[in-house]
Design a protein around this nucleic acid. Structure first.
Length: 572
DNA sequence: GCCGTTTTCGGCCCGACTGTTTTCAGTCG
């Protein structure tokens, strides 16, 4: 399997950080970081481009030097320059940078004078008061390091969107009660609906920022106050989520919101364009000389720079600026577009509610149809159905469709794709179903070649309809299994199958980057909840968020279709 | 190391907060 963009990007990030600690030219370091970001965001596989002889030095932020390094990485799987550096600096030294208050300069001093290379060694040195007398340190900084090192070790993970969400809503609610606040919003990756959130960024307007900040740090759920200035503050909640708060005057709201919504890559790209036009953009507005010419709303910012409004989910510098300028931005899908949910479980397998309970709950969402997709019987699935049990379930669905007039229950199954690519249910039964959702639930460690072959073999079955959670990743728990994604996407289109965007908060699989690649190759999707009880049907919104980040439109999604059209679509 | 609608050289996004700083370096986002 060729090396992934993320792995290549990581190599350049590590290279940049190690060079930074060594005190190399700052702009060279920025160049490596820019290259890393560009590669991580790229829609197509860099390794594949290299193998096919494309000129990667034409890519933004990639010149001849970095292109040569990339070719070395693709060819050998590693970068000699980085290996050499790592021999000099143990890999754990980069952990020091995760401690609040330690940047490259202080990390270098700690390494050079006290030979500190890990968080453990840092903590020991701080406890023994060896740090306070170093150049650039003090007893106060030493104490801060001691406090923060504990924290750095605990964290290091991003929070799932659904975990951050209630905290974001609660603190937003609290801030709205301040009488000094005019407007307030949660910006950052949360507003961009990213599947994981590193911290929460809040932006507010007020005539009296100081008062607002003082109110902010009194939030009852605060564990620690990191920073407490006149216009900004940073706190840590008891849940260990960091919240950055920024307060500006009302005529700067648009630019502040834009800046703190990010992404960094998106904002930097626009700032560069501004510089080319002799303008300056900061969080207070767009300036020509000292004259502010824009800033009160985001629409204003984009218009001044010659763009149509760009939805937060698209702001990743993945082509949205060019698309906006050309008037080719997608019309992103909305929750209201959904007419049904095509993946859910009942007590027939590992779900907690009956078919009727699930159907009635779905009616509450205004759905026209649902598909019941209980598990097939297989070693890895608890309470999976055999043929007899599925037959019983189908009979019950017939009775319920007679009884319930406002919703149609489609007959389906979540069938296992076995290691040899066959499906764990006989075709004589599968052909009676309206659709077949199939998924991989074991043998995650096959090689990319084997895993891809397994799934493509399964798709040869004429009753195969939708591939469930295509990469199997679980956020913060399990990596995606190795697959040749582009081949999978092309074959999916070729065979008239569909890919799922699974809305479970810990799955969100396909993710945004793959969804966009797949869409561009003509793949159509099902966005479904994989609900195991009636309460989780609302997960649909998380799947929609992920789809929007993947530039997905209503027309790309089959469960936005009216039932009659959906049925046509499901015929292979 | 990258990049170019005055440039193949000389720039590189921009500002707030902290510490102990009397004018700024380091860090962070």
């Amino acid at each position: 399997m060729a090396i992934s963009n993320v792995e290549i990007a990581d190599i350049f990030t590590h290279l940049a950080e190690l060079l930074e600690i060594q005190g190399y030219n700052a702009f060279k370091i920025i160049a490596y970081k820019n290259a890393a970001r560009e590669i991580a965001n790229l829609g197509s596989s860099v390794a594949r481009m290299v193998e096919e002889g494309d000129d990667i030095s034409k890519l933004p932020s990639i010149g001849n030097h970095i292109a040569e390094k990339i070719r070395e990485i693709v060819k050998t799987g590693k970068l000699t320059q980085l290996e050499t550096l790592q021999k000099k600096f143990p890999s754990h030294i980069l952990d020091l940078l995760k401690v609040e208050g330690i940047g490259p300069k202080r990390a270098k001093i700690l390494h050079d004078t006290l030979h500190i290379n890990s968080l453990e060694e840092l903590m020991r040195a701080a406890k023994e008061h060896k740090i306070r007398d170093l150049d650039g340190f003090s007893d106060k900084i030493e104490q801060k390091i001691l406090d923060k090192t504990m924290f750095a070790k605990k964290i290091g993970k991003r929070f799932m969107y659904s975990v951050a969400e209630p905290h974001a809503n609660a603190i937003l609610d609290y801030m709205q009660k301040s009488k000094d606040i005019l407007k307030v919003l949660v910006a950052g990756s949360f507003r961009r609906r990213k599947d994981t959130v590193g911290d929460l960024d809040m932006v507010a307007t007020s005539k009296n920022p100081k008062k607002v900040i003082d109110y902010f740090v009194q939030y009852p759920d605060v564990k620690d106050i990191i920073l407490h200035g006149d216009t900004r503050s940073t706190i840590i909640l008891k849940s260990n989520i960091q919240v950055d708060f920024r307060c500006v005057q009302e005529d700067s709201y648009g630019s502040a919101l834009h800046y703190f919504t990010g992404s960094r890559a998106h904002v930097l790209a626009i700032r560069k364009l501004a510089v080319q036009r002799d303008l300056k953009i900061n969080e207070y507005g767009i300036f020509r000389g000292k004259q502010s010419i824009s800033g009160s709303s985001e629409e204003d910012i984009y218009k001044t720079m010659g763009f149509s409004y760009i939805e937060p989910e698209l702001r990743e510098n993945r082509g949205e600026l060019e698309a906006s300028r050309k008037g080719e931005l997608p019309h992103l899908i909305n929750q209201e577009d959904m007419r049904g949910d095509l993946h859910m479980h009942t007590t027939y397998s590992d779900g907690q509610n009956s078919i009727e309970e699930m159907a009635r709950a779905a009616m509450g969402f205004g759905y026209e149809y649902i598909a019941i997709t209980d598990h097939s019987k297989h070693l890895s699935i608890v309470h999976g159905m055999d043929e007899k049990k599925l037959r019983t379930e189908l009979d019950e669905i017939d009775r319920l469709n007679e009884k319930l007039k406002d919703i149609t229950i489609l007959k389906s199954i979540e069938v296992d794709i076995l290691e040899d690519g066959s499906l764990a249910m006989s075709n004589s039964l599968l052909k009676e179903l309206d659709l077949v959702v199939a998924g991989v639930h074991d043998k995650f460690n096959l090689s990319a070649k084997q895993q891809t072959k397994r799934i493509l073999k399964a798709m040869e079955n004429p009753y195969f309809t939708i591939l469930a959670h295509p990469t199997g990743r679980l956020i913060n728990q399990r990596e995606a299994y190795s697959l040749d994604m582009e081949l999978l996407f092309k074959e999916t289109v070729q065979r008239g199958c569909f890919l799922e965007i699974n809305s479970q908060p810990k799955r969100l699989d396909l993710n945004d980057i793959y969804a966009k690649i797949a869409k561009d190759l003509g793949v159509r999707f099902s966005i479904s909840t994989d609900s195991h009880n009636e309460r989780s049907l609302y997960y649909m919104k998380y799947g929609i968020y992920q789809a929007r980040r993947g530039w997905i439109e209503k027309k790309n999604v089959i469960n936005t279709l009216p039932l009659s059209e959906l049925k046509e679509m499901l015929k292979r």
